[in-house]
């Protein structure tokens, strides 16, 4: 455990550096809850859509919907989502409001995924909002506050990165299995053509770059292998703050590319990654990825 603790990016921070990093992280947390409230407001458009549905296949957190009037359940979920996230945006330093924001988001996402498909667009927000409930209170003379605050904040970054790595691990694992079976696999030049065509046939939709990416396999190939590489190595970035901005840029570009080809929007993740990594509190002056690389390569 001591070895892992030593890997945390703020392990060697001086008191002044810790203070500066916490100041940045506190601002990011404040913006996090404003962003969450904004996203909650954008769901208002779905409110009537869900009222129009009449059959539900509830995930475990919302089985209670089966025991109340369906429309009443929907109204409760959407109303509490707005109130809970609004209160956290107003008072992000209060644990009670952060807990409320997590609970209402947890219920909303469980509801949103209770119609036949467990999509993952909200998962990262649910996980990070859970961790943020545990942010420490600031008490006079509490010397461990800065370290504890940054531990939770780092946890938020790490859990988001872990999800990408897990996704990359499955692609590598199944890639080798399909390669052994002689099938088109994840490292094959046609991999992206197959994924895009398959997804668009499932939805009957078209996208801006669908024909181009299905036909031009030599464009899709490096993009697809590059995406696997970005995903697989994501978790290591948690320990390398100099790569935070670069990785965030790469993964956001990947999501934009997926939207333009497969039509899948991961807008919530784009917002969250921009919040957590563009101005990461662990990036200190001179701590750039170029410097890290030249040090490792002895330039």
């Amino acid at each position: 455990m001591r070895f892992i603790l030593r890997l945390l990016p703020f392990h060697n921070f001086s008191e002044i550096m810790l203070k500066e990093a916490v100041l940045k992280a506190e601002y990011i947390v404040r913006f996090y809850y404003i962003a969450l409230f904004f996203l909650a407001v954008t769901t208002i458009g779905d409110w009537s859509y869900y009222l129009d549905k009449s059959a539900i296949d509830p995930l475990w957190p919302i089985v209670w919907v089966n025991f109340v009037d369906y429309n009443f359940g929907v109204n409760i979920i959407f109303t509490t989502l707005l109130i809970g996230t609004f209160s956290a945006a107003l008072f992000p330093k209060m644990r009670l409001t952060r807990l409320a924001a997590f609970l209402v988001l947890f219920e909303f996402v469980a509801f949103d995924k209770s119609f036949g498909q467990l999509a993952h667009n909200w998962h990262a927000f649910v996980l990070t909002s859970f961790l943020l409930v545990f942010l420490p209170y600031k008490r006079e003379g509490d010397k461990s506050y800065n370290h504890n605050f940054l531990s939770i904040f780092w946890g938020c970054q790490a859990i988001v990165l872990l999800a990408y790595t897990m996704s990359g691990v499955w692609k590598i694992y199944n890639g080798f299995i399909q390669m052994a079976l002689g099938e088109i696999h994840n490292f094959h030049p046609q991999a992206m053509s197959y994924q895009v065509a398959d997804r668009l046939l499932q939805t009957g939709r078209t996208t801006l770059l669908d024909s181009f990416i299905i036909e031009q396999i030599w464009v899709g190939w490096p993009l697809y292998v590059g995406a696997i590489f970005i995903e697989l190595l994501a978790f290591s970035v948690a320990f390398l703050p100099s790569f935070h901005r670069l990785w965030a840029f790469a993964v956001i570009s990947m999501h934009i590319c997926i939207k333009l080809t497969m039509g899948i929007g991961f807008e919530q993740n784009i917002l969250l990654i921009a919040l957590l990594f563009f101005n990461s509190p662990f990036i200190v002056s001179g701590n750039r990825w170029q410097n890290w690389l030249s040090k490792k390569l002895n330039f």
Partner: peptide, 13 residues
Amino acid sequence: FPFSAWDLFEDIP
């Protein structure tokens, strides 16, 4: 939920 394997688009159809 909210655990997930994150096995999204893990193989080629």
